[in-house]
Amino acid sequence: MMSQIWRWPLHSPRRLLGTLLLLVLVLVVVTMAPTLWSASGRPSASPARTTDDRPAPAPTPSPSSSTAGPSPSESEDYGQALDVARQFVSAWAGNKSSFQVWYAGVAVHATDDFAQRLATVDPKNITARGVIGKLRLTDTGGGGRTEVAVLTDDGLVSVTMLRDRDHRWLVSDLQPGAQQEAG
C-alpha cells in the first residue's frame, strides 16, 4: 500500500508537479496560519482615541483597511501611537539649543531611516515651538501603520507611525498639514 502511495506522484510529470505544488501550499498555509489568524479583524468598541478622552472621530477609510475595524490589541496600541507622536513632535518643535540635544530627542522616537533623514535637518529652521492641541488618528488602516494629526503653534503636521518588531510605535515621516477628518 505505501509503495503505491509513493509511486502515484512519480507516475507522470503532471502528478509530480501537482504534488509538489500542493506540498508547498500546505507548508505556506501552516507557516502563515498564526499570522493570518492574529491579523483577522475583530470589531472593536473604540478603534481610536484622542488624548483628551473625548470620543474620537471615525478614521478615514483607506484601501488596506478592513470593514470589521482594528482588533482589540491594535486599538490599545493606537493610544501608544498617540503618545509617541506627541513626544516626537514636542521634541521636534521644542529644544533647539543645540543640534545634538535636538537630535537625541527626536531620534529615539524615529525609525532608523527617518532618523537618518533627521540628521540632515537644521532645527533652527523649524518654526513650530510646541504641540498646542489634541492629537487625532487620521488613518488606522492597520498593518502596523497609522497616521496622526498633531496641532502645533505653526499649524497641523501629519505624523506617519509604524509599529516595529517589538510592537513599539515609531515615527517614519512628518509632513506639514494633515488628512481631513471623515465626516
Rank of each mutant, 00 (worst) to 15 (best):
S73Q: 07
E74N: 02
E76H: 07
E76Q: 12
D77G: 13
Y78S: 02
Y78I: 01
G79M: 00
A81P: 03
A85N: 06
R86K: 14
R86T: 04
R86M: 09
Q87Y: 02
V89W: 00
A91P: 12
A91C: 09
A91D: 00
N95A: 14
N95V: 04
K96F: 07
S98Q: 10
F99Q: 12
V101E: 14
V101M: 12
V101W: 10
Y103C: 08
G105D: 04
V106I: 15
V106A: 04
A107F: 04
A107N: 05
A107T: 02
H109A: 10
H109E: 12
T111C: 12
T111K: 11
T111D: 03
D112I: 13
D112R: 13
D113V: 13
F114N: 08
A115R: 08
A115G: 03
A115H: 05
L118N: 01
A119S: 15
T120G: 11
V121L: 08
D122P: 14
N125A: 08
I126A: 08
I126K: 04
T127A: 15
T127K: 15
A128C: 06
I132F: 05
G133C: 06
K134A: 13
K134Y: 05
K134D: 13
R136N: 00
R136M: 02
R136K: 02
L137P: 11
D139H: 06
T140I: 15
G141C: 11
G143E: 07
G143D: 03
